[in-house]
């Protein structure tokens, strides 16, 4: 169906004049300067969030794996962002944390005597990466913590006796032990991150310009704002193909960890 629509000239503002468009929609998408921006932004968004959540998740998991006072509460606090709906989370960040006049960041900047940063205007993509990473960090932490807790204590002790310091133990034992969990986190998150759009909608609307438009949002914009069903369908097909390519390389790269 989508495939069929993608070859049509079909605009909801003018539904009477449906005609065969051939490859025009694809060509249109392909030549749209926003398209390449969107691909680039999608990649930056996915990779940025993955990097932050995996590295941050490992760090937090290492911290809360140690028995500390109030461990249960700390764990619940860390998990809680995951239960917040994406648009709500984005709104909280937009209006309470990153807002240039009432945001927490702005307050901190002012307290330090600095000029508050207008996050969404100046660093739109970075802001979105931060918001999305905040949402996914608990998921990553949880999975990685589980992996960490299944690490055999005697192995660590053996390595300690074998002369491996804390860093060597982390590199040679902890990381390989967690490889599988990291793979799972990367794969699952990639699937969801390719489709991020609510956060963009409620914060930057893809702007300024196309600075924070990713593929999903571009398709959404084509369909909803321009009422161009044919163009949106073509974008959707392209997105699916791209997602498959990414997934393929991802599986190739990390799949060997899942044997």
């Amino acid at each position: 169906m989508t495939l069929y629509y993608s070859f049509l000239n079909y605009n909801l503002l003018n539904p009477a004049s449906i005609s065969w468009a051939g490859w025009f929609n694809y060509q249109y998408f392909y030549t749209d300067p926003a398209f390449f921006d969107a691909i680039w932004n999608t990649l930056a968004l996915v990779l940025g969030v993955l990097a932050i959540t995996v590295i941050g998740g490992i760090a937090i998991a290492l911290l809360i794996d140690k028995p500390i006072f109030g461990q249960g509460i700390v764990r619940i606090l860390i998990i809680s962002p995951f239960f917040v709906m994406p648009p709500v989370a984005a709104l909280i960040w937009k209006n309470m944390i990153m807002h240039p006049s009432y945001g927490v960041f702005a307050d901190i900047s002012r307290a330090l005597g600095l000029q508050p940063v207008d996050w969404f205007a100046q660093y739109p993509l970075t802001s979105i990466i931060i918001i999305v990473a905040w949402q996914w960090l608990p998921f990553a932490t949880l999975i990685l913590l589980t992996a960490l807790q299944s690490l055999d204590g005697e192995q660590m002790e053996a390595a300690e006796m074998d002369g491996a310091g804390a860093v060597s133990r982390f590199i040679h034992l902890t990381l390989p032990h967690m490889a599988r969990a990291i793979t799972v986190v990367v794969l699952i998150q990639t699937i969801f991150l390719l489709g991020i759009y609510a956060e963009i909608l409620v914060t930057t609307n893809g702007g300024p310009g196309n600075a924070s438009t990713n593929l999903t949002y571009l398709i959404y914009r084509a369909a909803r704002l321009n009422f161009d069903i044919g163009g949106a369908a073509a974008g959707g097909i392209i997105a699916v193909i791209l997602a498959n390519i990414v997934a393929f390389f991802l599986m190739r790269a990390v799949g060997k960890n899942l044997d």
Binding site: D152, E154, Q155, E157, A158, A159, E160, M161, D162, G163, A164, H172, L173, P176, H177, A179
Partner: peptide
Amino acid sequence: TPPAKRGLAMVFQSYALYPHM
């Protein structure tokens, strides 16, 4: 003295081999 510096080697009940090596 930390374990590594004592010059002793230990064999554990669970063998404690490094599974990915």
